[in-house]
Amino acid sequence: MILMFREESSSVPVEEGEVYDVTIQDIARQGDGIARIEGFVIFVPGTKVGDEVRIKIERVLPKYGFASLVE
């Protein structure tokens, strides 16, 4: 059996350590804010819908990422 793996890096528009300006569009069940960069979901703790914030990408997974607020 041959397993094929999709090239994830081409579908992920963010990179760990990069800084972005985003608007929080939603709130996750756990209470984290949700921003989207080119449709890619980023969870941002300590934010609420409508916040315009600068974030730093901390961790990137194939379907979503996590970021922290930049002071």
Rank of each mutant, 00 (worst) to 15 (best):
V44S: 06
E8I: 10
R36M: 00
K63N: 10
T47V: 06
G65Q: 09
E18C: 04
S9N: 15
F40G: 04
L69I: 14
S11T: 12
D21R: 11
G46D: 03
S9I: 10
I2P: 12
F43H: 08
V49L: 01
Q30G: 05
V14G: 00
I42H: 14
A35Y: 07
F66W: 06
G50T: 06
S9E: 11
V44D: 03
G65E: 12
E58L: 05
P62H: 03
E38R: 09
P62W: 02
S9M: 09
P45G: 10
E15P: 06
T47A: 00
D51F: 13
A35G: 07
R59S: 04
I34T: 13
Y64K: 10
V44N: 05
S68E: 12
I2F: 13
V49M: 07
I57H: 06
D32A: 14
I34P: 12
V22A: 00
F40W: 05
Q30D: 12
D51W: 15
A67P: 13
V19H: 15
R59C: 00
L61T: 08
F40S: 01
F66M: 08
G65D: 11
V12G: 01
I57Y: 05
S68K: 13
F66Y: 12
E18H: 12
K48C: 02
I42C: 07
P13G: 01
K48Y: 01
L3H: 12
I37A: 00
I42W: 10
G31E: 02
V41T: 15
E18I: 00
V12S: 08
G17Q: 06
Y64A: 01
E8R: 12
E15I: 10
R54T: 15
I27A: 01
I37M: 02
E7W: 11
V14N: 02
G31T: 04
D32K: 13
A67Q: 03
S11P: 04
V53G: 06
S10L: 15
T47Q: 06
I57R: 07
F43G: 01
S10A: 09
D51A: 10
I37C: 05
V49F: 04
R6S: 14
P45M: 07
M1C: 07
L3W: 13
E58G: 00
V44I: 13
V19M: 11
R59L: 04
A35N: 08
G17L: 07
